[in-house]
Amino acid sequence: MQKIETHRLILRNFSEADSQGLLEYLGNPRVSCFLDERTSTLEEAALKVQKRSKDDSYVAVCLKDSDYLIGELFYLKEEPDTYSIGWNFNAQFEGLGYANESVKAFLKYLFMQLGARRLYSYVEDDNYRSQKLCDRLGMRKEGYFIEFISFTKYEDGTPKYENTFQYALLKKEWLKKQSS
């Protein structure tokens, strides 16, 4: 992926120097969908960084002044032109507008560089920050799935199913918003 610079951030491929930053937000995932990504050691983080560095569908979000990793954006392409998108950020950098700033640039990249026609994102019903972010980005709430997916289990071993919203945005909707 080509490096993208915003006012305060750099979006780029992962590099070896990102292991500590990745460990900080994957060491204790706050959202259930990232529980299977939990990372306990710097060595585990380095292996994940190495894998992500070879995969353009993972985008490192770094502070412009220090190039320090504070989160990631990612996509999964569904042929021919639909992309499922998501993000995960270090809690220490919440509330500063970094997610909004980086995802706006990510949407532009997906629509204008990769030719996306439609983007969508799944957000658990208790993940209020991501819901607000989707709203700010102009994504529309398309659905609400009851007991949609399980990422964890109750103490008795039975699966705990998550209620999940689906948000989406079409390129033509995004373009209209850009021109207004």
Rank of each mutant, 00 (worst) to 15 (best):
D55Q: 14
K64E: 04
N28T: 15
H7V: 12
W87T: 07
R117G: 06
L47I: 11
V49N: 03
R117K: 06
Y167W: 13
N90L: 00
E155D: 14
C134Q: 09
V103G: 01
I146S: 03
N28R: 15
S32I: 05
M1Y: 05
L119K: 11
Y83R: 08
R30W: 10
E78Q: 15
T158A: 09
S19P: 03
E5P: 01
S15Y: 12
L22C: 04
L114H: 07
R8K: 07
Q178A: 14
A168Q: 13
L114M: 09
Q50T: 14
N127W: 02
S102V: 08
I70W: 03
L114T: 02
T158F: 12
R140E: 08
A168R: 11
I70C: 02
F165Q: 00
K3E: 13
S32Y: 11
S53D: 06
K153Y: 15
K172G: 01
V61M: 00
S130M: 01
S53Y: 09
V59S: 01
I149F: 04
Q131E: 10
G157H: 11
C134L: 09
S19R: 08
E16K: 14
Q92Y: 14
E24Y: 08
K108P: 00
G138E: 06
F106W: 07
Y128I: 10
C134D: 06
F74D: 04
A60K: 00
T6Q: 05
L110V: 07
K153P: 05
N13Q: 12
H7L: 10
G27H: 14
Q166T: 10
K48D: 05
A105Q: 10
S53I: 09
W174A: 11
L119D: 14
F34A: 05
L23V: 02
D55S: 08
F148N: 14
G138V: 02
I149L: 14
N88C: 05
A46W: 00
K77S: 10
L119N: 12
T39I: 03
N127A: 04
T82N: 15
D67P: 01
S53Q: 05
Q50F: 06
V59T: 05
F145C: 05
S40P: 00
P80E: 03
F145G: 06
P29A: 02
T41K: 00
E37V: 03
N163F: 13
A17I: 08
K141G: 05
T152P: 01
D65E: 15
V123P: 00
A105V: 08
S84I: 13
S180N: 12
L35S: 13
Q50C: 06
L169S: 06
L169Y: 07
N127C: 02
L11T: 01
G97R: 08
D126P: 00
A60I: 02
A105L: 04
K64L: 12
L47E: 15
K176D: 15
M112W: 09
S53F: 08
R30L: 00
P80V: 01
Y83K: 05
F148Y: 09
M139S: 06
G21W: 11
I149Q: 12
Y68L: 02
L137G: 10
K172D: 06
E79A: 11
S179I: 15
R8D: 09
K3P: 06
R117N: 11
C134S: 10
L63Y: 14
D18F: 13
